[in-house]
Amino acid sequence: MSTQSGVDAAVGARHRADTRRLSTGRTGDRIFAGAARGSGILVLAIMAAIAVFLIWKAIPALQDNKANFITSQDWNPNATPPKFGIAQLAFGTVMSAGLSLVMATPVAIAIALFIAYYSPRKIASGLGYVVDLLAAVPSIVYGLWGLRVLAPHMDGISRFLNDVLGWIPFFGGDSPGKNSIFTASVVLAIMILPIISSISREVFLQVPRANVEAALALGATRWEMIRLAVLPYGQSGVIGASMLGLGRAMGETIAVAMVLTFVPGINIHLLEDGGSTFAANIAKSFGEASPTGRGALIASGLVLFVITLVVNMAARAVVARRKEFV
């Protein structure tokens, strides 16, 4: 997913309504209209094809399943009879992605604001480039780094969080470890940082000069100007950027698979070893899966697809609620 298309999606929605015009009927117009319409339909067709493929492949396995697919925490599709459910995977996916979003978004917004409004002009573009470069690091490298470099250091941090915040169930538990969902979410946070940051930065830079000057002329300091003019204008773009980041975090496979140690069952103590996600589980078990096992994994992929879709629609609803003011 390219950064630019994200920006267009975030910013373009504003202008779309007034740029729609009737075609004049000239050849160029007709070709362009046809190409644009065709591309639009193609996107829908691909989405539908993915959904149909997933459902088609998943049905046989779901019919053989002897456990509740939604609520069961088992994942034994290769056993006879097969028993599997997505509860643990859904929990691991949502928690790790959610936690990474909570960690990454404030930092990403701060970086974007710094580059757009605080840093000297000369270093701003170089700085932006370096942040964007983070997105170019392959996820296997993040996985290795998470496993070899970050995880050993997470021991102390996990124990500290456990001591201080142990009264919150998520940070509770008796044996905080290093191959936990928490560690995975730190790796994910770093991975999604550049996408959120670079889209936010583009949106912040598009704040009309008139709004910025209106705030400054009222006697706003730089931070007050950002609060009055920049953040309200950029809000929907930042939400869109976060959702792109969340989508990436939920779909991230190899880095998470490398960091997490598989322990069966939902463990709400996120600092303890264990947990799994849809994508990591598919990557780990697809190779040696039986036909039913593959069907089960595809069914879990379908659930991930639906969750991502729901999250995106929820984000759009949040953005649309403020439409009157945009």
Partner: peptide, 22 residues
């Protein structure tokens, strides 16, 4: 300069109310 702008108000060529505010 922030203090100066609080004493000397300004109205611009194009009306520029904050678009996200009531």
């Amino acid at each position: 300069p922030v203090a100066v702008r609080r004493t000397v108000g300004m109205v611009f060529q194009r009306p520029n109310p904050f678009p996200t505010m009531s």
